[in-house]
Each structure stands twice: as structure tokens, then as C-alpha cells.
Design a protein around this nucleic acid. Structure first.
Length: 445
RNA sequence: GUGGCUGUAGCUCAAUUGGUUAGAGCAUCGGAUUGUGAUUCCGAAGGUCGCGGGUUCGAGCCCCGUCAGCCACCCCA
């Protein structure tokens, strides 16, 4: 009989414990932060009717979409982001949800695009959105959520770069390029990557702009200084455009509020080159870069849109949201050496040592678990050395060693696996001394 | 989707100009008179040379296809 080769599809990955543990930790942090701002969890099906997903109908969408017929002959597709499902979801349930509605959604999405480092065909998105309000508070909170998330992940050196589509569009209006805004913004988005001259040329090529028009757009790039100075210059550039003025005013308000939030001063920066490729953004747009790894690109980004669900409902649903780039963030953390080489989620290892004391071991294990520790009990009585080797390899912090001698004496040994130190403790009926010593040890290391 | 580079053990790599039974380190598993890991010592296992076809007396090495990875382009709702 020929064996089937175990393998995974191009762009699809297995996650071993060592990769999955930090991954879950970040997802837990994201959930905790999102919840702390009142975003509620939702989930939607991986598979949607094809017409839901192709509603926007760009060619690129079609190319990247995983589509097929199900067993009932229905045309279906796998979701390629969480925004389209959110739009469908809100249009379908707005009566039950009430507005404004704040939700977060951590889920897998699929895109059949060509793979590259950090770009896969199956990946996780960690979105949060506020639907049904245009209030500046929701703009401010979106920035604050991103900042709080990164801080709780343990990253301190980051910059949230913000811009406003109204400013860009106001400028385009003045330049007479309003119709070609998508093409112009797409080119502008590449400014940092390809440089000023190439951007200029590309705007002329893709949007059919004149030299004067494209220069007028690129005047943006000459906006420099601190945020206040830039805002003044932007006001001048966009003078005469209502949208531009409103955008400048909103940027000013967001920056001021974020600067005044404890722990967030200096974390937000106006960056006129940020356009975001997505043509549905209409207001604030944001990207986040790491000071230690500027080259890795944005690890959290998002923006405001006027009308999320116009394809599915007549109801006007403005909103703002952002998304954490989980894979990019993880590879950044890895590059920074911030991913511990651990393949166990538990901190305490309990060797099975005295073969006839199974029930006593199980009791200690459950006492430690009740006290909040993750405890792995080795499944069979083996040589202690082999068991400790196993524990070391997996990165446990501590081992609780209890053999026949300790049981007889009513004691246990607590071994710190990172420094090899060991202490002998009294093992009471409620294991109180052990719990206290473990708390110390886990806190310390 | 387009173009380029790459593919030998779980990982990183080696293997004279095409020439016998494809090697090493690390990792894995076992052991060093059955109670202490990560540092030591001994041993074992592990390879359809990504896969398929072709050229050749002979292919890990050359050719074609295919799959996968990396890079650039495209794109990223």
C-alpha cells in the first residue's frame, strides 16, 4: 500500500506549539484590549454566498477569491477579509444590534494570491470596528485601541501614523483630479517605497494627470514640521475645499486628544503620505510602524468609511475600524527576539515518580491548578532524569518533585528549572506553602 | 497572474569533471550499577537526493515538466 505524503497546500501553514503559544497570547491580548473598550465579539461563517463576496466586483477580488460550488450547487466563496462579512452581518442584523455597534472579530481569511514572506493564502485577521457613528470620539478611540494593544503586547517604540482622506481628496478636487482619486492615492501610497520622481511619473501615467497637476498633489510631500506646523500648511494647501478643511480640523482634534491620553503622548504622528490602497476609506486613515523595525511595514492599520453596507441595505452605516496584522507582528517580535522558545503553555511540571502515589500526585496537581497554575503531570512513572529532561526541553519554569521520601516526610521539592535552584517545602494538606513559593518563583522569572 | 533564484535526514549544510554501499553537525530516541534537566560520554534510528519523465553504459549533479520555498512585479476591498 502506498503511503500518502503528508503535506500542506501552498500558502497554508501548520502551527507547532512553539509558534502557536505566542500567537494565542497575542490574540488573547487583542481580545482583552478590544473588550476593555467595549467592543463585542462576533463571528460569521467562513463560507458566504458568492454574490455577497463579489458585490464590489473588482477584477482583483475575483482573482483572489476561493470560489466553488457546494454540494447543493450553490455558488459560494471563502471570505477574504472580515469587513465584507461585517457589512453583510450588520445589514442583516442591525435591528437586533442597535447602533452604534462596536464589534471585534478574530478569524481566519483566505486569499488565493501568490505567496511571499509574510503573505499566505490562509491567515488571521484581528479586526475591531465602530459602526453607526461619525463622531470624532470613535476616531480617537480607534487610535487609542491600537496604541493600548501594542503597549500590552509589550512594544513601546511605535508610531501611529494618521492622515485624512478628506485632506487628500480636497487637494485632488483643487487639482482637478477628483475623478482619478483611486489611481492617484494608490500611487501616493508608494511614495516612501519608490521616491518622489517615480511617484510623480506614476501619477501622470496611471491617472492621466498633467505635470502641473501631479506636482500640485506632491506639494503634500513638502508639508513638514511638527503636527501643528503640518496642519497649518495643510490648511493652506487645501484652502477652498470644504472636505479638505473638515479633514484638517478632524486630524487636529484626534491628535490633540491622543496626545492628552496618559501613555500616548508622542505616539501619534501626522503623515501625509498615508493613503491606504483601499478605496472605501473616506476619513481618518492610520498605519502603525515599529521604531525598532521600520522596514517591516505597518502592523496595524485601518480607517473611516462612510457607508459600510450600501450593497446590502439602504441604511447609511458609517464607521471606523482597524486591524492588527497578526502575522507581521509575530515576525517582528521574532526578529526582535521577543518570542520565547517555549512549547508548553503550563509553567509547572510535576514528574510522576513514586509509582504507587498516583492519587496523591493528582491531588497536588489539582490543588496547584485551583491556585491558578498550569500544571502538567507526566503520564507514566519514569526515571526522574528523563522526566526533567522532557520538562527542560519544553520550557517549564518549575518542577515540583515529590518522591517516596518526600511523601513520607510530608515535604516536596520546588525546583527552578531556569537556574537549577531547589528548595524543600512542607507539603500541607492544602499545599499552601508550595502555592506561595510557586507564586514567588513564577513572578520572579 | 508575470519574471528570477532555490529544492540532499526534522533543521543547517557536504558529496572531485556525471562514476561503487550519499556524509557531518544540531535535533530525535535509547543507554552510562534504576532520586535531579539544560553542560559530558556511548549508541541507535532516520534519506523515494521534492515529485514525474528524458539524455547516458551510468544522474544527487545535465535537459523538460510539475510541486514547494524565497525574491521582485502586480495587488493587498
Amino acid at each position: 500500500m502506498s503511503r500518502i505524503e503528508p503535506r500542506t497546500l501552498k500558502g497554508f501553514r501548520d502551527y507547532l506549539p512553539q509558534a502557536m503559544i505566542p500567537r494565542e497570547r497575542i490574540m488573547e491580548t487583542a481580545r482583552r484590549v478590544y473588550r476593555s473598550f467595549g467592543y463585542a465579539p462576533i463571528d460569521t461563517p467562513a463560507l458566504e454566498y458568492l454574490e455577497i463576496l463579489t458585490g464590489k466586483g473588482s477584477d482583483e477580488t475575483d482573482k483572489q477569491l476561493y470560489r466553488f460550488q457546494d454540494h447543493g450547487g450553490r455558488d459560494v466563496g471563502l471570505r477574504f477579509d472580515l469587513t465584507v462579512p461585517l457589512a453583510r452581518f450588520v445589514a442583516q442584523h442591525s435591528a437586533e444590534l442597535g447602533l452604534p455597534f462596536k464589534r471585534y472579530h478574530l478569524a481566519t481569511v483566505w486569499r488565493g494570491e501568490n505567496t511571499q514572506r509574510g503573505r499566505y493564502r490562509e491567515f488571521m485577521q484581528c479586526d475591531f470596528d465602530t459602526i453607526g457613528t461619525t463622531g470624532v470620539a470613535s476616531d480617537i478611540e480607534t487610535v487609542l485601541v491600537v496604541g493600548e494593544l501594542l503597549r500590552q503586547i509589550g512594544l513601546e517604540q511605535f508610531t501611529i501614523r494618521i492622515n485624512h482622506r478628506g485632506v487628500l481628496n480636497g487637494l485632488l478636487e483643487k487639482a482637478g483630479l477628483a475623478e482619478q482619486s483611486t489611481a492617484v492615492l494608490r500611487s501616493l501610497d508608494k511614495l516612501a517605497k519608490i521616491g518622489r520622481e517615480a511617484t510623480l511619473a506614476e501619477i501622470q501615467r496611471t491617472a492621466g494627470a498633467t505635470t502641473a497637476q501631479s506636482e500640485q498633489v506632491l506639494a503634500l510631500v513638502d508639508v513638514t514640521g511638527d503636527s501643528a506646523a503640518m496642519l497649518t500648511q495643510l490648511a493652506t494647501i487645501t484652502a477652498g475645499s470644504e472636505r479638505g478643511a473638515a479633514g484638517v480640523a478632524r486630524l487636529a482634534e484626534v491628535i490633540r486628544a491622543v496626545e492628552q491620553t496618559p501613555g500616548m503622548a508622542g505616539r501619534v504622528q501626522l503623515d501625509v503620505s498615508i493613503a491606504r490602497g483601499l478605496d472605501y476609506y473616506t476619513g481618518l486613515v492610520l498605519e502603525t510602524t515599529l521604531g525598532e523595525l521600520p522596514g517591516i511595514g505597518s502592523i496595524a492599520s485601518g480607517g473611516r468609511y462612510d457607508n459600510l453596507a450600501s450593497l446590502y441595505t439602504t441604511q447609511e452605516l458609517p464607521g471606523i475600524g482597524a486591524s492588527l496584522g497578526l502575522d507581521r507582528l509575530l515576525s517582528a517580535l521574532e526578529e526582535l527576539g521577543r518570542i520565547p522558545a517555549v512549547s508548553t503553555p503550563a509553567e509547572v511540571f510535576l514528574p510522576y515518580f513514586a509509582a504507587d502515589k498516583l492519587s496523591d500526585y493528582l491531588r497536588v496537581a489539582s490543588q496547584l491548578r485551583a491556585a491558578g497554575f498550569g500544571v502538567e503531570f507526566y503520564p507514566e512513572p519514569r526515571k526522574l532524569g528523563a522526566q526533567l529532561k522532557y520538562a527542560d526541553k519544553r520550557g517549564f519554569r518549575a518542577a515540583v518533585i515529590i518522591g517516596a521520601d518526600e511523601f513520607a516526610a510530608g515535604q516536596c521539592q520546588l525546583k527552578n528549572l531556569s537556574d537549577g535552584g531547589s528548595q524543600t517545602l512542607t507539603l500541607e494538606a492544602d499545599a499552601a506553602s508550595l502555592v506561595a513559593a510557586l507564586r514567588e518563583l513564577v513572578k520572579k522569572t
